[in-house]
């Protein structure tokens, strides 16, 4: 299927209380354009799921939201992405505090080769969030509790993070992300390396985190998108095809491409 000419996103891409606003975002890898004119709001305290077939640009788009694409030399982003009204691609913006405000959890759990405690304490230390050892202990405990991991690791905070199971490691990474008190959490297929029980725990966690954070999640699992998100955005060949409330997308999608993808007709 080819790029749709004069394409317009179906459904409701904009919302009333946006935390992040993407406007006419295009992403280029050298000459090659990967994302075409995407405009989308991500509402405060909502979970938005980004779905679509491999190579549709959903991860690329997610990585624009905290300038993760800056790490790729040939990558160039056009358009605007506003966090609380401020363009994050403005030359004055420092990416280090930006990535503390907009945290990211990756597909494979990637704990530092340090103790569980130091994994969590790393961010608060470099961002100067803790003024004393007591402060730091408190941040570590609170983050682990929020990530639903505290009870499992409280007696072995100084053993290596890499010694935890896959699901625990992923929750450790989530705890590490929330330790720096972000406003937005980006998740790039956070459960694809996990078993169903670990997945269920992460999904439960996502639902709880929504109270305090805004979350955008890229997932290959349609059931996961249906379970955790309030809105779902469908990407296809770098274009944003449809954004609608999740229950609507999975029962009566507006666009035939969305329908074809979620019913397993291609992807």
């Amino acid at each position: 299927m080819s790029i749709i000419e004069n394409h317009k996103t179906n459904g409701a891409a904009f919302c009333e209380n946006p935390k992040l606003k993407a406007r006419n975002v295009g992403v280029f890898y050298g000459e090659k354009q990967a994302i075409f004119d995407v405009s989308l709001d991500i509402g405060a305290n909502e979970v938005i799921a980004l779905i679509g077939p491999s190579g549709c640009g959903k991860s690329t788009f997610l990585r624009c939201l905290n300038r993760m694409n800056d790490t790729i030399d040939i990558c160039h982003v056009s358009g605007e992405i506003l966090l609380d009204g401020e363009n994050i691609y403005d030359t004055k913006v420092d990416v280090v505090p930006l990535r503390a405000r907009v945290g990211m959890v990756f597909q494979k759990p990637n704990p530092f080769p340090k103790s569980i405690y130091d994994n969590i304490a790393y961010g608060p230390r470099i961002h100067g969030l803790a003024h004393s050892r007591v402060d730091l202990d408190e941040i570590v405990e609170k983050s682990l509790q929020r990530a639903g991991l505290w009870n499992e690791v409280k007696d072995r905070l100084h053993s290596p993070g890499t010694g935890l199971s896959g699901g625990q490691q992923q929750r450790l990474c989530i705890a590490r992300t929330i330790a720096v008190d972000p406003e937005v959490i980006l998740m790039d297929e956070p459960c694809s390396a996990l078993d169903p029980i670990a997945t269920a725990k992460i999904e439960e966690l996502i639902d709880e985190l929504r109270e305090n954070y805004t979350i955008a999640i890229v997932t290959h699992s349609m059931q996961q998108a249906a379970r955790v998100s309030q809105r779902t955005a469908y990407f296809h060949l770098g274009q944003l095809i449809e954004v609608n409330p999740t229950d609507q997308v999975f029962t009566t999608p507006e666009h035939t491409l969305t329908e074809a993808y979620i019913t397993g007709r291609f992807g």
Partner: peptide
């Protein structure tokens, strides 16, 4: 087995 969605679910 299939967790059908959209028109399949309907």
């Amino acid at each position: 087995r299939r967790q059908p969605a959209a028109s399949d679910l309907r």
